[in-house]
């Protein structure tokens, strides 16, 4: 695992420990995707956080919101010294889910309830078209989230409005393995007239190449990336024990899991 992947995961573990809450399996499955977007793909930097034409990152799978802070810390927008003592506290602006009304930039939406972020992102992408803004929109969804009807409804709208400034990323960590069989997602998304690419969601080079390739396609078709990921990736314990879907580490576990990440 690349050094940055280890740093991001260790910081996520630390924040979950400080907050005493979190969905770490889900955070670990998408961290590499979120990092590549912020580091290599999006027109975004701390200086551009309120720029009218910045790219937008919308988190639809709200249970992985904790992935945002480590990424924005590494990008220099937030600092660990500010977040760690505050996260989860009564009056804090930092917690397991975000509240954009407490921020001026950096946080683009409120997540938590599933099936909202994707249509919200579609609205932003549609507004970008109306405003003739070069801003692109990236939205991170869960594979299980596609059980929600609003997901499919918004795909119809995105396709009808030819939103080629929209990229839907599915963090395909096999959640639906435990739910209903969703069938062939690639075929389904293609049938909705999306350009679809499947990629290893932990291979940063492959992710970068995929996003860059899709960015060049100004063909009136919205984009979808099915990122094949592993829940808890980077920690053997977390991969093997589903209790880590919703569990935060105590001091001892923090130490043990951080060591696992270090050696991954």
């Amino acid at each position: 695992m690349e050094l940055i992947s280890k740093i991001l995961r260790k910081n996520a573990l630390y924040l979950s420990h400080k907050c005493q809450d979190g969905n770490l399996q889900s955070v670990f499955s998408c961290l590499d995707v979120v990092w590549v977007l912020y580091d290599k793909i999006m027109n975004w930097s701390p200086e551009l956080a309120q720029d009218a034409d910045r790219d937008f990152f919308i988190i639809s799978k709200g249970q992985a919101t904790l992935a945002l802070y480590p990424v924005l810390i590494e990008k220099g927008y937030f600092s660990m010294d500010e977040i760690a003592p505050q996260i989860g506290k009564f009056d804090s602006r930092y917690c397991i889910q975000t509240d954009l009304t407490k921020f001026e930039g950096g946080i683009e939406n409120n997540a938590g309830s599933l099936g909202h972020g994707l249509p919200f992102a579609v609205g932003i992408a549609n507004a970008n078209k109306i405003k003739k803004s070069p801003s692109s929109v990236y939205v991170l969804c869960g594979d299980g989230e596609f059980c929600e009807g609003t997901m499919w409804e918004s795909l119809i709208f995105a396709s009808a409005k030819k939103l080629d400034n929209l990229t839907v990323i599915i963090d395909d960590n096999n959640s639906v393995g435990a739910m209903v069989d969703m069938g062939d997602m690639k075929a389904k998304l293609s049938a909705f007239n999306f350009d679809v690419i499947e990629v290893d969601g932990h291979d940063m080079k492959a992710l970068e190449k995929t996003f860059k390739e899709l960015k060049t396609l100004k063909n009136g078709k919205p984009k979808a990336v099915i990122a094949k990921t592993i829940r808890g990736y980077g920690s053997k314990t977390m991969i093997e024990n589903d209790i880590w879907f919703h569990k935060s580490p105590n001091a001892e576990e923090l130490d043990m899991l951080s060591k696992e990440v270090e050696l991954a």
Partner: peptide, 12 residues
Amino acid sequence: GMFSIAAGMARR
């Protein structure tokens, strides 16, 4: 879904 899409447009 239209409400969410409209909210996204209001965000912009």
